[in-house]
């Protein structure tokens, strides 16, 4: 509707001045062919014009996107490269030591393990939960818009700011031995008959930290997944459901035999983007924990560090190693995405 309106508007507007032009000889047909020729010449010019239109984007992309790809490979092969040392005139050895140093670094296994663990737990949990919520939302009418709006809210927040709120919720206030308050989450836990847990304070256990992180990441990941899955559900042909209803199929069976297969492209999409996001997990950790410790207060050796955390930990002093780590991250994400695509090719019904 809108398109048509603008279409007619614009054509009438543009043609009005052309008709008034003095060139307008009485022979309307001749004029038209002349104009066509002119248009053709215009299109011929478009070679140069196109590059002119592309120029700003290409200049910026060349400096900050294309060159970095080449430069990353270059400096990843310069041992312990740093731009400060380069400015000081240091010559760097060309070898693959940055890569072996990253892999041999004792903390690297921790980073890799944490990243894998967070991804492998949060992606399935958030996908399942999002699927249930989306199916629920799709079968109600009353308050649907309200629920949809509420469930999307975590998306429009600042991961660091809300991470600080989560920390405040889980934190024990005051000294751990004689706290003035165990915090709101622990108060709720106690109300349900549990006992207070040291989630994020000094001396807290690895699994307590992980539980908080997983909760936060799932909370944060739900909106996007709900949005995509609900969008998919709304496009499902309702005839399948009508047929199932006539046959008296149970809800559970409808869910597994109709909804999940028909939604499988969307599910594959959120799982793949979830894996990619999971392997880049970093800001949710520094929202809750200290950036320099990557763990609860007083921890040594960055117990909660991730692969991206490793990259940013070395970026200030040793860009050679940071580049090598970034390339390794790229390779890992690439392989995982390929596996995901392979699996989904077998499982997804298009």
């Amino acid at each position: 509707m809108d398109e048509e309106k603008i279409l007619t508007e614009s054509t009438s507007e543009e043609s009005a001045p052309a008709q008034e032009s003095p060139e307008g000889a009485p022979g309307g047909k001749k004029k038209f062919s002349e104009r066509l020729k002119k248009a053709g010449r215009w299109l011929g010019h478009s070679q140069l014009k196109a590059w002119l239109y592309l120029l700003p984007a290409l200049v910026i992309l060349a400096i900050f996107t294309v060159y970095p790809i080449i430069n990353t490979v270059r400096i990843s092969m310069l041992e312990d490269y740093s731009f400060l040392k380069e400015k000081g005139g240091t010559e760097f050895l060309v070898n693959f030591n940055n890569f072996t140093n990253v892999v041999h670094y004792r903390g690297f296994l921790t980073c890799m393990g944490n990243t894998m663990l967070l991804t492998v737990i949060t992606v399935p949990v958030s996908t399942m939960l999002a699927l249930l919520i989306a199916v629920g939302l799709n079968s109600i009418k009353w308050l649907k818009k309200v629920f949809q709006t509420i469930f999307f809210l975590p998306y429009v927040t600042n991961a660091i700011a809300i991470g600080m709120v989560f920390k405040a919720m889980f934190e024990i206030i005051g000294p751990v031995n004689s706290p003035s308050s165990v915090g709101i989450i622990n108060t709720i836990v106690e109300a349900f008959g549990g006992s207070a847990v040291n989630w994020v304070n000094e001396g807290s256990s690895y699994w307590a930290n992980m539980a908080v992180l997983i909760f936060f990441i799932v909370w944060n990941a739900l909106p996007f997944k709900i949005l995509v899955l609900l969008g998919g559900l709304q496009n499902v042909n309702k005839q399948y459901y009508d047929a199932a209803k006539v046959d008296g199929t149970s809800r559970f069976r409808i869910f597994w035999r109709i909804t999940v297969p028909l939604l499988s492209p969307m599910i594959a999409y959120v799982v793949i983007t979830g894996f990619i996001g999971g392997f880049k997990e970093y800001t949710s950790i520094i929202g809750i924990f200290d950036e320099s410790l990557m763990g609860p207060p007083g921890s040594i050796g960055k117990p909660l560090n991730t692969m991206v955390g490793y990259i940013y930990g070395t970026i200030n002093n040793n860009q050679g190693r940071a580049s090598a780590a970034a390339l390794i991250l790229f390779a890992v994400i690439f392989v995982v995405t390929m596996i995901n695509l392979y699996v989904s090719k077998k499982r997804v019904h298009y």
């Binding site: 970095p68 430069n71 990353t72 991206v308 990259i311 940013y312 580049s323």
Partner: peptide
């Protein structure tokens, strides 16, 4: 991944 661009 954006991290690669961030480094260089």
């Amino acid at each position: 991944p954006g991290e690669l661009f961030t480094v260089t």
